[in-house]
């Protein structure tokens, strides 16, 4: 099998696909749906934010291994971060998965396992779907909060 496939489907990713972490709905939380009309992947991201800090992040939905593993890893990595920090992490993550194949991989902790996506440009949408939903979830309530 070719090495770029092995790099894409690393054991960590397959594990998060098989046993997604934080795979549940949160009552009374900020939420937003990420939908990729091209492939039908659909994820809902739930956020419990307290004083600008993400206390809890969960998700539900269906999608390919990449989108599910990415969502699972994301919920782990944003917990305890401020919304602004999570947004900054998304930007770094997005840079990583869209970088040219020979660029060095930034250290993003566990999220770095998704760097293999850069070899597969059509799969970038899968890897970033949950992050867009996270951003939307964070912003949606943010608007409400700002008017109160």
């Amino acid at each position: 099998m070719m090495s770029d496939l092995q790099e894409l489907y690393q054991e960590v990713i397959l594990d998060h696909n098989r046993r997604p972490r934080n795979f549940r709905a949160l009552d009374d939380a900020r939420k937003a749906e990420g939908y990729n009309p091209l492939c039908g992947d659909r994820l809902t991201v739930y956020l419990r934010v307290d004083d600008g800090v993400i206390k809890e992040a969960t998700f539900q939905g269906s999608g390919c291994a990449i989108s599910k593993a990415s969502a699972s890893l994301m919920t782990e990595s944003v917990k305890g971060k401020t919304v602004a920090e999570a947004e900054a992490l998304f930007e770094r993550f997005h840079r990583t998965v869209t970088a040219s194949p020979d660029a060095p991989v930034e250290d993003l902790g566990k999220l770095s396992v998704l760097a293999g996506v850069r070899q597969f440009p059509v799969r970038v949408k899968c890897a970033t779907l949950a992050w867009y939903a996270l951003r939307a979830a964070a912003e949606a309530r943010g608007d409400v909060v700002s008017t109160e």
Binding site: M1, M2, L5, Y9, C39, G40, G63, C64
Partner: peptide, 23 residues
């Protein structure tokens, strides 16, 4: 079973096999 069609499509593409995956 247990594999989303998109992952099938990517793996097949690496073998030169072009199929459609999705709805």
């Amino acid at each position: 079973d247990g594999v989303h069609p998109h992952d099938i499509g990517t793996i097949l593409d690496r073998e030169g096999v072009a199929i459609r995956t999705g709805h």
